[in-house]
Structure formats: structure tokens, C-alpha cells
Design a protein around this nucleic acid. Structure first.
Lengths: 153, 153
DNA sequence: CACCGATTGATCAATTTCTTTCATGAACTC
DNA sequence: GAGTTCATGAAAGAAATTGATCAATCGGTG
């Protein structure tokens, strides 16, 4: 990928807001011809700047009313402990996000579940059962003030 | 929206993995005819179960190498303090996510920046300057183990 | 200024994809 | 069982994407 100029940034901003835009609209709003828009999007796809296009769904309508932020501390940080924990994270779609952090906790997880019971069940069944997990602190999300996928570009 | 049956769930799962699938592919993988797939997707769009379709970009290539999880505590929880804080969150795209939490902290923020300096600048300029913000604890993301937008359905 | 390469926009044909229409059959009601 | 509604699939038409070509334009360089 070459340098990313202003016109490409405009396309990217539009696409991360709505990738179902027709090429004609995209071009118009991006202030360029359809051919140029097409070529730039091709490049962005090929270069992997556009990683993927996904549909964002409404959690409430799909009965996932609960969202939890959990902070996890492992017992030790040996290869095996980390791999074991990673595997739990990978294999459970309820864990939507997981970041290794600096600071007081090793990991931060964002977890979705239908309700407190099923969260509790998932937790005890899969996370707390893992021998390397020393500590989990769960905070319930009271309100989603912002949940954007748009990078600040 | 009526009840959501298995075939619709299959479509939703596919779409939240890749919404650039052609209708024909979507239908085939979802195990139904193209017309049926089209109609179901229309309904899901209309009902808002599919909230939007977005492009996910590569933060690294866009020079956003830093990701920070910040925990914020407000001074008080009066209308004004909350509104003031909300306004900061709304108006700054660097703050990609913000959740009001139960537990030790009032809010959790996910923030993207190019580097530590610009993060520091943003922080002091916009968050710490806010008179209602009592405390901010920043944890740097060392590794993104998982960052999915797929709901566990 | 003249030249060169790169980028852009316009246009077109081929292909693919989306959307509508229509007919069929199942399920249900009266 | 006749009639109605509803969901389904096939097929046809409309529209958009894809990819290529060509001329015009822009920027830099000798």
C-alpha cells in the first residue's frame, strides 16, 4: 500500500460507516469518479487496509441483554498458562473481545450473554474451572454509551 | 420482527462474518433459495436486527498502533456531570467504546491513538480537563487476543 | 518549456448480482 | 373440501459491479 491521501481517507471513513453503499454513491460522496473510487477500493481490499465487511446486529433483539466486562488475572505467565487461557478465549464466542493489558490485571474480556444466570453458568463452567485463572472480577455493563467500530482516521 | 428461526440465525451468522457475500452464496450456505434468502435479509434489515454493515479496517496500517483501556470515575453522578462526560465521549472518535459499569469504576473506555504522546495529549486536553472527571486509570493493550464483532448467536 | 510517468475520469461491454414477478404447494380456516 | 393465507423456489428483468481502454490532466524533472 502506498501512502494514504485525503481522498482515500474519505472513502475509508464512508466505508466504515456503511459498506453497503453503492459504488456510485461512494464515489459521489467521496468526491471522485466511479472509476477512481473503484480502483482505490480494490487497492484497499488487496492491501488489507479493509480487513473485512461485516453486519452489526442488534443484541437486544437477539436476546443478548447482558454485557459484562471481566478482568482476569492468571496464576503465572508461563507458556502453558497463557496458551490454556487463550484457547478458552478462542473457543467461546460469548467472549467477544479479549485484550492483554498492562497494569493491575492481565486481561480484559468483553462477554455477552442472555442473562445473569447463563453468564454465571458460562463463567463457572469455563473460566473459573481453568486451573491457571487465579482471579476474575466482573463488572456489568449498565449502559452502552458508545460502541463504535470506526477507527479515528 | 417475528420469531427468529434456525434458518434466519444461519443467515445472521454468515452476515456478521462477511456481509459482502453475494446473495447466491449466502442462500446456498444458508440452505435456502435465493429468493427466500433475499426476503429474510430484507426483513432483518427492516426490523433493525441488522443494524448496519460496516468495513473493519486495519488499525496498524492506518497508524493507530496504540489501544488503551481507561477506567473513569466521576466526581458525582448528577445529571450535569453525566451529560458533560457523555458529550466528551460522543464528540471524540478516539473514544471508540464507552460503557457505564457496575463495580469499582463508573466507566470503561476503549481509546485508539497513534502513539503514547498523542494519547497523553488527548487525555490531558479532553478527559482530565473535564471538571467532573475525578480519576482515570489507563491500561495499555499489550495484545489484542480477540476483537470480534460477532454476537454469540 | 517539453517530456515523462502517474493519476484521473469517461465510456463501454461482459458479467454478476439484485429485485420483482409468477406459479406451486403447504397449512390453516370456515 | 373450497377458499385463503403464507412461505417457497424458479425464472425473467433491472441494475450494479467488474475490468479494460483511452484521452485528459497533473506534477515533477531535465
Amino acid at each position: 500500500m502506498k501512502e494514504i491521501d485525503q481522498s482515500v481517507l474519505r472513502l475509508l471513513r464512508l466505508l466504515q460507516q456503511d459498506c453497503s453503499l453503492a459504488l456510485a454513491d461512494l464515489a459521489e460522496r467521496g468526491g471522485m469518479s466511479q472509476s477512481t473510487a473503484w480502483r482505490k477500493v480494490q487497492e484497499l481490499d488487496a492491501a488489507g487496509v479493509i480487513r473485512r465487511r461485516v453486519a452489526l446486529l442488534d443484541a437486544r433483539q437477539l436476546d443478548l441483554k447482558l454485557c459484562v466486562i471481566a478482568h482476569v488475572t492468571l496464576d503465572d505467565h508461563h507458556e502453558e498458562a497463557i496458551e490454556s487461557f487463550s484457547s478458552v478465549v478462542r473457543n467461546h464466542p460469548e467472549i467477544m473481545e479479549c485484550y492483554a493489558l498492562s497494569g493491575a490485571f492481565d486481561y480484559m474480556l468483553k462477554i455477552r450473554a442472555c442473562d445473569v444466570e447463563s453468564y454465571e453458568a458460562f463463567m463457572t463452567r469455563h473460566l473459573l474451572r481453568n486451573p491457571h485463572v487465579r482471579n476474575v472480577v466482573s463488572s456489568f455493563v449498565l449502559r452502552e454509551m458508545k460502541a463504535s467500530t470506526e477507527l479515528p482516521i
